[in-house]
Design a protein around this nucleic acid. Structure first.
Length: 274
DNA sequence: ACCCAGGCATTGG
DNA sequence: CCAATGCATGGG
């Protein structure tokens, strides 16, 4: 059986909740308890299995992408051990045991997805992003490949406006697609250097750069202090915290996983909603 | 009919 | 350096 092993504990349903919580995600499509994503020219089906996930097809092309997608880079064991003495995260890691944050496997996709989510609600962002995917992606099976930079760089921004982008965001996306970014080289740099390079690109601010480090590169210390959800979660779970960016230092060196667990706890607990 | 939602660039002090 | 402003959609 095509089994991709993952360290225990792993809770597939919990970990993939992001792909359903704000409406369907055409690039990471949930179908009858399984996740579908286009890798190369094929649709890959990922479903829960004992000891990991069942992946079909599983081969040299799909394996690294699925491993990246499912966040195998995260060291949950060390995180849980580290959280032990800290009351809040100790509780969250128990309640959310097996949550392994999924990642955006592709850097361009990660950045464009963040642009769509700037300022507006995640429901609205998913809706706009899905229309982008439908219009400029490629359907394979039931899922769609995310639109490529090559495709979007020859697109008139007005076409994106038709899909619900603001004029400004439409320019950001087409401009980003036209940038020649050596992502392989970028990934070798330290966090702050990567942020500096990204923020220099129009439409990419600190929030977007932080989520790129967190959700594409899985950098342990990424801490999106400007994120509205993170701020709400910190306020809810650490009423005495004060400045959110400074508070992040208390979470060293697990800011990224801490942010994901705080957000998951915030969204899973309706009582905390305003 | 409002108002807010996982920001950002732009403009003006 | 900081404050104010406009922007798009979808849910409440």
């Amino acid at each position: 059986m095509p089994l991709l092993r993952l360290p225990e504990p792993y809770d597939f349903e919990l970990s993939t909740g992001r792909y359903r919580a704000f409406g369907p995600d055409l690039a990471n499509l949930w179908v009858d308890g399984s996740l579908r994503r286009v890798v190369g020219r094929r649709e890959v089906r990922i479903s829960p299995a004992r000891g990991g996930v069942r992946v079909e097809p599983l081969d040299a092309e799909t394996r690294p992408v699925v491993r990246k997608l499912l966040g195998t880079e995260f060291d949950l064991g060390s995180f849980y051990e580290w959280a032990g003495p800290e009351p809040v995260l100790a509780r969250l890691t128990r309640e959310l045991a097996g949550l392994r944050p999924p990642l955006a496997p592709d850097p361009f996709e990660s950045l464009v997805t963040s642009i769509t989510a700037q300022q507006i609600s995640l429901h609205a962002a998913f809706s706009v992003r899905n229309r982008l995917i439908e219009r400029f992606g490629r359907r394979v099976g039931q899922a769609y490949s995310f639109p490529t930079a090559q495709r979007l760089r020859r697109t008139d921004p007005d076409e994106l406006v038709q899909l619900g982008f603001s004029h400004r965001k439409a320019e950001y996306v087409v401009g980003l697609a036209a940038e020649k970014i050596d992502f392989a080289a970028l990934e070798q740099l330290p966090d702050e250097e990567i942020k500096a390079r990204l923020v220099a690109i129009r439409g990419l601010g600190e929030w977007t750069a932080d989520w790129f480090l967190a959700r594409h590169l899985a950098r342990p210390r990424a801490w999106p202090a400007g994120d509205l959800g993170v701020r709400k979660a910190v306020a809810a779970f650490y009423p005495e915290a004060g400045d959110v960016r400074a508070f992040g230092e208390r979470l060293e060196p697990f800011q990224n996983l801490s942010a994901h667990y705080l957000l998951a706890a915030l969204y899973s607990d309706r009582r905390l909603e305003p």
